[in-house]
Design a protein around this nucleic acid. Sequence first.
DNA 1: CGAGCCATTGAGACCGGTCAAGTTGGGTGG
DNA 2: CCACCCAACTTGACCGGTCTCAATGGCTCG
Lengths: 249, 249
Amino acid sequence: MPFTSTGPLPGGGTRCEYCCHHSRCLTMGLEGEQLADFDALLERPRPLKRGEVLVHQGDQFGNLYAVRTGSLKQVQFQVGARDQVTHFYLPGELVGLDGIGSGECVGNVVALESTYVCELPFLQLEVLMKDSHTLQHRLFRCMGEELRDHQRMMCLLSGRTADQRMASFLLGMSERFRLRGYSPSRFFLSMSRGDIGSYLGLAIETVSRALGRFQMQKLISVEGRWVSLKDMESLTRMVAEDVGRHSGT
Amino acid sequence: MPFTSTGPLPGGGTRCEYCCHHSRCLTMGLEGEQLADFDALLERPRPLKRGEVLVHQGDQFGNLYAVRTGSLKQVQFQVGARDQVTHFYLPGELVGLDGIGSGECVGNVVALESTYVCELPFLQLEVLMKDSHTLQHRLFRCMGEELRDHQRMMCLLSGRTADQRMASFLLGMSERFRLRGYSPSRFFLSMSRGDIGSYLGLAIETVSRALGRFQMQKLISVEGRWVSLKDMESLTRMVAEDVGRHSGT
DNA sequence: CGAGCCATTGAGACCGGTCAAGTTGGGTGG
DNA sequence: CCACCCAACTTGACCGGTCTCAATGGCTCG
């Protein structure tokens, strides 16, 4: 097989420097030697097929993973409750940060489609951070962002209606696609309705009905897992709407 | 009242070395010169009175805070929805980690009683971490733990009944008190029912009724904000019980 | 002693979950 | 190419948990 000079090789070879996620990944801000060092410590395992498990719940924590192409979900198994989807990962995002605390992986991470990742051994990453203040700062930012996102999610889950959750989910996905250079108004959801429901704390039927309602109201159109956002303004307004849940505080 | 100081001096003066939270705080594992350096960079502002605001939502992020005595809540204001309590902080815990991501404080942090904190300028902390691998590792662990806790909370909010949420909350508080050397079976809740409801995504009346129900079932006894756990086993069982919410996944 | 907050309790309404049946679509084998 | 299957999704009917509204009592503070 001849050498190919650009883009990800089928075997997984590529260089951070040329990776289209460089400016959004952990490598953001890294240059020259530091970037080369970073590049040197990561592995690029063979791609995952749909349904394959990247990380098993309970495994000892050792690696972070950066998604290159494809997407994954994190699923947590719990005694006495249905499994719960706690995360969706898109290209450029970091898998496994939540394992740093306990040293144990908190859930299964499963590919939703054919997915390429980069494997980052955390111990080596820590060593690298001693010499690279940029990298250290960057990883702290990533974790801080995830904390903030989780808090948003908690607010969404505890105070908002089914329609608001769905609208917020769609807008969130739209924004994430936009940031990655994909269309924010028409995209493919690689996860099932069941996954979405689990993630949003809704029954699968409620997800389906909400989508149906949105379509009737001409806010979106749905064909299977393809979604087009027709009226993002109304969706945004819907999320912010006061429905007066809780008498708290 | 709990958390009245045995170790830290009322005036705020103390040393990390002698602080009763040393082994649980960011300083865990630090010794000798490193601990002294850490000690040197932190401020010990005057104590907060009940209701006083330590951090304002939207403020530029600059400091972390370690709680020495007392307790606080984090409240997020949101357009079109009621304010939401997203955190309770007890002695030895770290306030402000979620600001690291965006550089902006995500919510108000308000004292629930007279509260002493240590102020840790994050920039200086980052500098210190260049020389102290221990400190760096420790801060990563703290953030990882918070991530994991948030995920637990998301699972709680999205898949469990009011009773299960209350039981989980009580057990969680109990455990946190136990770790700090207080009684795990009888403790004072410094937050109002409204705060609890907001935190758990429940109406205030639902919180009240759940507590009443638990008391009738002899699982706990309640006198105002004092709570005694009578039957932690049943409470634990209740949390794990499958109530069959969601048909997802 | 009244004002205001906090907590409790009751009555009724409604959102969303469960159960059940039906539809669609992709994959497989004859 | 069609028949069949299974998983994913949709739709309808019903029910229950939790929210809202409202009234009450206790406590603190001015």
